[in-house]
């Protein structure tokens, strides 16, 4: 089977978020970057499916030139090749992102044949727009199931599991389909050293799509004023235990 997996480069923010002086971005000069968590699982799932069923996996991202790092990361764990929709540093809204991905998928399918499965993250860790996969599916006329923690391909059908309070909801749709997934779908593997070496040789096709005017237009970011607390230090080491028990008793949690 042929699988496309779409990923997004996001910063690893750590303990506090610091903004650039114009408040239009996160200051990232001291931060590392990663594939957004849900999509790390999408990459792993694509690799496992191709290992089992044969075929080819392609990773796609829309992002700045530096996002090549995340494409190489995906290829280091077994994705065959990559498509990079290269942008400037400006962030694209969900509609514009989906539009560019749709064009790229159509071009790719025209040259290399149709995909059986397209995997997206349910929402990105940073923007949290909840929409790119859904929009791409609609434009391509594909059925779309979202927020999945279980995927099982059975011939030309795919059984999909969503986690809901108290259990799981099961959907079943025919291939080709677009699925959006969540972390917990699987446990992504770490790249091996030979994997990293191989990833350097694998091809990346680059395109530079034109950014349309944003219809969800970002003005600025604000770091919410969290209630910054002064934690009451109950003690150091095991000697603090009686103070903790006192606290538990006060809270009515000892009964």
């Amino acid at each position: 089977m042929r699988i496309l997996v779409a990923v997004k480069r996001v910063p690893m923010t750590g303990g506090t978020i610091v903004l650039t002086p114009d408040a239009r971005a996160i200051a990232t000069q001291h931060l590392g970057f990663t594939i957004s968590p849900h999509e790390e699982c999408a990459v792993e799932e694509a690799v496992r499916l191709v290992e089992r069923e044969g075929g080819e996996s392609v990773v796609l991202t829309l992002g700045p030139p530096e996002a090549e790092e995340q494409l190489r990361d995906a290829m280091a764990v077994g994705i065959d090749r990559a498509i990079h929709l290269v942008t400037d540093e400006e962030e694209w809204d969900g509609q514009a992102t989906a539009g560019a991905i749709v064009e790229a998928v159509r071009a790719e399918e025209a040259s290399s044949g149709p995909f059986d499965l397209l995997l997206f993250g349910n929402e990105s860790a940073d923007a949290g727009g909840y929409q790119v996969g859904v929009r791409v599916a609609h434009a391509l006329g594909l059925p779309c199931v979202t927020g999945l923690k279980g995927i099982e391909v059975r011939g030309r059908l795919v059984r999909c599991e969503q986690e809901v309070p108290g259990g799981r909801d099961v959907f079943e749709v025919p291939l080709p389909a677009l699925l959006t997934v969540k972390e917990g779908l699987n446990l992504p593997r770490y790249p091996s050293v030979p994997g990293r070496m191989r990833a350097r040789q694998r091809p990346i096709a680059r395109h530079e799509p034109q950014r349309p005017p944003a219809r969800l237009e970002k003005l600025r970011f604000v770091v919410p004023e969290g209630e910054r607390k002064e934690a009451e230090i109950l003690g150091r080491g095991p000697e603090a235990a009686p103070k903790v028990v006192e606290l538990l008793d006060q809270l009515g949690l000892l009964r």
Partner: peptide, 11 residues
């Protein structure tokens, strides 16, 4: 954004 760690003002 970021599960509530950041707010975005937008049109």
């Amino acid at each position: 954004r970021w599960g509530g760690s950041l707010l975005e003002e937008a049109l």
